[in-house]
Computed example of a mutant assay.
Amino acid sequence: MLSNEVHISSLIVHVAPEYLTATRNQIESFDNAEVYGDSPEGKIIVVLETENQGFVTKTIDAISDMPNVLNVALVYHEIDKEPHEISEASGVQFSEAEGIS
């Protein structure tokens, strides 16, 4: 039995260093985004928690379209199915994960 999916994704957002604080604040205003850190060089680590893959791509597009954003790279994407799928053959719980580098 499957119910809701939760998509966990991490991104590296690269901005011009002089716009780091303003861009970080804008990203933090997204309901599904959390900033985990940044660097003086203008790189921001962002984690998204969304309901489906459509929200992931929509959020990436929205961040990409922000002024002063130079690049957005998807680093990791995991799909967690709640409740966890249980393999009938083995009785083992698992979630589907996909790493992108």
Score class of each variant (00 low, 15 high):
2 L>K: 15
2 L>Y: 14
3 S>K: 13
4 N>Y: 13
4 N>E: 14
4 N>P: 05
6 V>A: 09
8 I>P: 02
8 I>S: 04
9 S>V: 13
12 I>P: 04
13 V>T: 06
15 V>P: 06
15 V>K: 04
17 P>L: 07
18 E>N: 15
19 Y>G: 03
20 L>W: 05
20 L>H: 09
21 T>D: 11
21 T>I: 11
21 T>L: 10
23 T>G: 01
23 T>H: 01
24 R>P: 02
25 N>K: 14
25 N>G: 10
27 I>D: 09
29 S>D: 08
32 N>G: 00
32 N>R: 05
33 A>N: 00
35 V>I: 13
35 V>F: 08
36 Y>I: 01
38 D>V: 01
42 G>W: 14
43 K>A: 13
46 V>N: 03
48 L>M: 06
49 E>M: 01
50 T>M: 07
50 T>G: 06
50 T>Q: 08
53 Q>C: 05
56 V>Y: 01
58 K>A: 10
59 T>I: 13
59 T>E: 11
60 I>A: 02
61 D>L: 04
62 A>H: 08
62 A>N: 15
65 D>M: 12
65 D>C: 06
67 P>I: 11
68 N>E: 13
69 V>S: 01
72 V>F: 06
73 A>C: 08
76 Y>N: 10
78 E>Y: 12
79 I>C: 08
79 I>Y: 02
82 E>L: 13
83 P>L: 09
84 H>M: 10
86 I>G: 09
89 A>C: 00
90 S>M: 06
91 G>Y: 09
93 Q>N: 09
96 E>D: 13
96 E>N: 15
98 E>H: 15
98 E>F: 14
98 E>D: 13
